[in-house]
Design a binder for these strands. Sequence first.
DNA 1: TTGAAAGCGTTACCAA
DNA 2: TTGGTAACGCTTTCAA
Lengths: 351, 351
Amino acid sequence: MKPTLQTVADRVGVSRSTVSNAYSRPDQLSPELRERILDAARELGYSGPNPTARSLRSGRAGAIGVLFTTALSIAFTDPYAVQFLRGLAEVAEDNRTGLLLVPLRDDDEGALEAVRNAAVDGFVVYCVPGWYKAMEAAWARGIPVVNSDHFGSLFVGIDEIASTRAAGEHLMRLGHRRVAIVADYISPDRRTGEVSVPSVEDLGSYVSRERLTGYRDAFAAAGLEWSEVITISAAGNSREHGAAAAAYALDRAPRPTAVVATTDLLALGVLDALAARDLRPGRDVSVIGFDDIPDAAQAHMTTVRQPALDRGRIAGRLLLDPPDDPADRRVVLPTELVVRASTGPASTGSV
Amino acid sequence: MKPTLQTVADRVGVSRSTVSNAYSRPDQLSPELRERILDAARELGYSGPNPTARSLRSGRAGAIGVLFTTALSIAFTDPYAVQFLRGLAEVAEDNRTGLLLVPLRDDDEGALEAVRNAAVDGFVVYCVPGWYKAMEAAWARGIPVVNSDHFGSLFVGIDEIASTRAAGEHLMRLGHRRVAIVADYISPDRRTGEVSVPSVEDLGSYVSRERLTGYRDAFAAAGLEWSEVITISAAGNSREHGAAAAAYALDRAPRPTAVVATTDLLALGVLDALAARDLRPGRDVSVIGFDDIPDAAQAHMTTVRQPALDRGRIAGRLLLDPPDDPADRRVVLPTELVVRASTGPASTGSV
DNA sequence: TTGAAAGCGTTACCAA
DNA sequence: TTGGTAACGCTTTCAA
């Protein structure tokens, strides 16, 4: 039989409350009694109050649920995601709170149940396309939910549209007119290949939708029709998928003078594809990514920098201590276009 | 006021038990009554049984605690670790169980409390040096603990010593006699630099200790004294630390003909250091890693392959369903020396 | 098929 | 400073 508070109380000859206080409110009893209680506990093999019972009574689960799609391996392969998580973990730790991972593969019943059954004080959603039913389940729980994409009552993110619009303007200024865009989550069947995106607004994935919108707007302002832009779907957010997707842009004539991607991971794949074809980034083909992960700098890649760590930190703070003022419940972080060697003037003469 | 089971029961005019059954045991009541209950719940905004209360009553937390040291960012930067976690997550998911991350930075009181306060059914320990007090706290909880290093009652791992012994023998066969070893966690002050390791047995880190032992034994069998081997401590398990550590081996005369590392991440750093000095791996200096992460293959690096995904999976299974037979509670997985281009005959003539 | 009663192990609150 | 009492919201057992 596992020892409980009562066991210890009986042994020392005090009440449960006193033993409870010895653990949770050391200032509420004399140091010597506390010492006696702790000794008895050790002797009995009592390792402290049962976390679950404590949670039930105190109304605090002591954990934040982290909702994300895609295999764990992908989620943690993206340096951007890891940074976000790190910021979140930092704040969680400071608040004596754990992080409960809730992977949402395949939007099935199992995922729904996982969300409903998670003993957490709130959810942080990251990389979850809006169509996931699990999102509704999270809302239904009636606990705080922080979103980075579709705007909820608690939000921390960036101005996605303005970010890629700036990137697109940069491209237009350089004179590019044959442009391809690589994005994940834009093909319903999750295949890699060229897809037609007649109306960007209808895309299910918030991130891809917004980022494409920014590019579309920038192109339009420069007189480049959206219908002339090649849109390619990547089956997932990885370097390999990016390279595979890039092939659909690079192996056609006339070849685009610029290939932009919705994430750095994809864009790095585009660079790989260029290298495989002996094409020079910024000379033969310009490339732009998004996130500014460390590898982007190393690859001299033009990209949009966003504060991943801060996003995570702020998500944690919003969740643990939701501001009353609605204005404070939505945080939009600044981004910055980082121009490096992977973009250059359009070489209009190329094949 | 948040709705509870009782709220719903009152609304429908049934007892709590029946509502409970509607969620947890659908076969225990008529489909139509269940439907009525679920409808009422929806109407009242009741999102299902409170996970904490359910846990308390049923005695199942529905989560596995994952104990690890080092910043989250480092932990998730190592592809080996991510694979392990992925295997674990897979099994957890199949068993409707979550993963609670419990980072153990700086072995302080906070970490202890985090372990004591984690609402979990067991702990999986990974990358935690044996000296951490948090480990004791985990054991004290009286719930299953799966270890990959210091042998507990539940264990899944590999024969570390035999693995590096094979690698060491490979090196000896190639004629290397000037050898350096890069390892993390072998310097008490966590600095990068050459350290003296008179007796390998005394190292605090299980992994480094075992892997060094294997090399030591292989060298000894070939007549190479341990005292002649250069041991270098890396401040952490990362490519950068590996490169920094390698400098202590490469920038000395006579230069070692081989530099081995206790992880692939470190070994990749060694390769970086070689490249920075225009030294050719396998010709000028032989390099061996450990883990066989994808980048290792890409870098044509000789290394020891271990089944990371399986390790994670088995850890999960051991925890969720501990075998009765003690023999089944310890699983040792096979490893394999993968010889690639980074090792070659010792070029004895080099400076 | 449904319901009543008894906890699960703790903390909050108030009285002593 | 300490103790008694009453929940926290649920599941389980057993009886109807």
